[in-house]
Design a protein around this nucleic acid. Sequence first.
RNA 1: GCGCCCGUAGCUCAACUGGAUAGAGCAUCCGCCUUCUAAGCGGACGGCUGCAGGUUCAAGUCCUGCCGGGCGCGCCA
Length: 591
Amino acid sequence: MNIFAVYKDLVLAQVAALVSEGSLPDGLDTGRLTVEPPRDPSHGDMATNAAMVLAKPAGLKPRDLAERLAARLATISGVTAAEVAGPGFINLRLSAAIWIGCLRDCLRAGPGYGDSRMGNRRKVNVEFVSANPTGPMHVGHARGAVVGDVLAALLEKAGFRVTREYYINDAGAQVDALARAAHARYLQALGRLSDDDLAGMLARKDLEYGGDYLVPVGQALAERVEDQYADAPEAQWLEPVRDLAVEMMLDRIRDDLDALGVRFDVFTSERGLVAAGRVDGTLAWLEEQGLIYTGVLEPPKGKAPEDWEPRPQTLFRATDYGDDVDRPVRKSDGSWTYFAGDMAYHRDKVERGFEELINVFGADHGGYVKRLQAVVKAVSDGRATLDVKLCQLVKLLDRGEPVKMSKRAGTFVTLRDVVDRVGKDVVRFIMLTRKNDASLDFDFAKVTEQSRDNPVWYVQYAHARACSVLRHAGEVFPGRDLSPAALADGPLEVLDAPEDLEVVRVLAGWPRLVESAAEAHEPHRVAYYMAEVAGAFHGLWTKGKDDTELRFLIPEDETRSLARLALVQGVATVIASGLQVFGVQPVEELR
RNA sequence: GCGCCCGUAGCUCAACUGGAUAGAGCAUCCGCCUUCUAAGCGGACGGCUGCAGGUUCAAGUCCUGCCGGGCGCGCCA
């Protein structure tokens, strides 16, 4: 339960009361009315801008309206003070009992605390990773994978029904190039191609993919078909070799994603869409809508492409839906462009009943966003929306020094390398310590360091510390039921110290944070919030060093101890809840 | 040339979709361990939010124009 949403409803009810008594005109827009924690804690527990938002359309002075509304708000149960401040804010102070109630909710809900019905079971489609099946994934893919997976989990927690999808780019020139490289490895496995020959082909760019990861594909081929494809023309082997290579690459990608703790509900094959006639169908439909035509595009200005010459192309009227230019859907050889496949895929998503689509892409796909949004609008008659989260670069470092990566030198760092080196939990958490559109430093030394400036460790330490107190409590109060449920039923009103209540308030903010982060599609906010919880807890801990009254365990005062243990349990619960969204295992003890 | 993203303390970054006096960490300086994990905590220092206008009760946030950085720009995916 989001306590701020609860009080927003109460404020809205009082606004409605002012309307019905004639103090306010009917039909006011309350859409911009907010109830939120003030930045400055001295302003109270909650602040509302109601009077400022409503004053102008109501023809009133903000402060006058604020006074009238504040008088009513002061009568609401749980509100101990409602003061007008600044340009017309109303600051509310809530009784400690309200916050204690939040803590009880938290303990009873466990890691499910913060679950929301905001999404109202609406379907959301999150497409992410969608890495080409032409090789192993690198760290950049890891970021997209984590952002997508955790965004999906966050939306689920906020009450949406989420489908995680991966689009397989298995049509087009890239996978043909993969097939040729796999075939070379096959010849190598048969002993028909020397290492030098292979190196020569790579150097001449006759082969695009030279990584060792294709060696097993070549061997598998050699075992299955022996020398059947050795002297055969490309037309004979390209397809079967390609299919096997793609399948093996996908197996590896799935394994790597699994190691990172990422799973998908749906894999959609581009080739499959084409084969099923979905691309033809989509284009035919668009043509019926008058959205396909043959035309000649202007050259991009200022860029002066040397080989540019005007030629007629089959184009989609993306400009009708906000794109900058119309986009080609067919290549000159008659086959579909990549974009045509993506049009069919997004139409497919819409036809499966999704009206909220999210794609997680690398930042280099930024130029692709508008045309996809245009497609989504076109095929859904404007009902569906597409939000694209562009993930910036991950810079790999070690002790501040950039990790040099080169495919040729074999020093390329794959997703698997990183996961194997620091563990999936660290990778997942660190990937969320920046906004998706900001570049991110991933320093091998720092992310495993046990210090304040390693957010993973800092948060885990808080959780472990909380667990440590709870373990210790079992020894101090043997035989006592210290389960969260039992703690929740205790006389928590004794938590009257401002220092205690401050932490309780932070914990009570979790449901609100879940909703706002989910709405904004910004999972990184959860990381910052967890760091805040950890900081509040570490601070309270240390205060117990100076002031024994603030210690969690006071052997001679069992009542107070149990109440504080409830608070400690609350900290552990909220952190565990946040880590659950992240797909990270909470640590109960530091080694 | 056009489009998208970004520009906030010396450094790395927040800022709850427009709220009050812009916040953390690192670095620097000063404090706190016979007591639940000091692997931590508290305090000080640090700002014309790139620049200039505009919108309004209110702008880091929205609009316009510049400056600077990244990405992209007709049959690659």
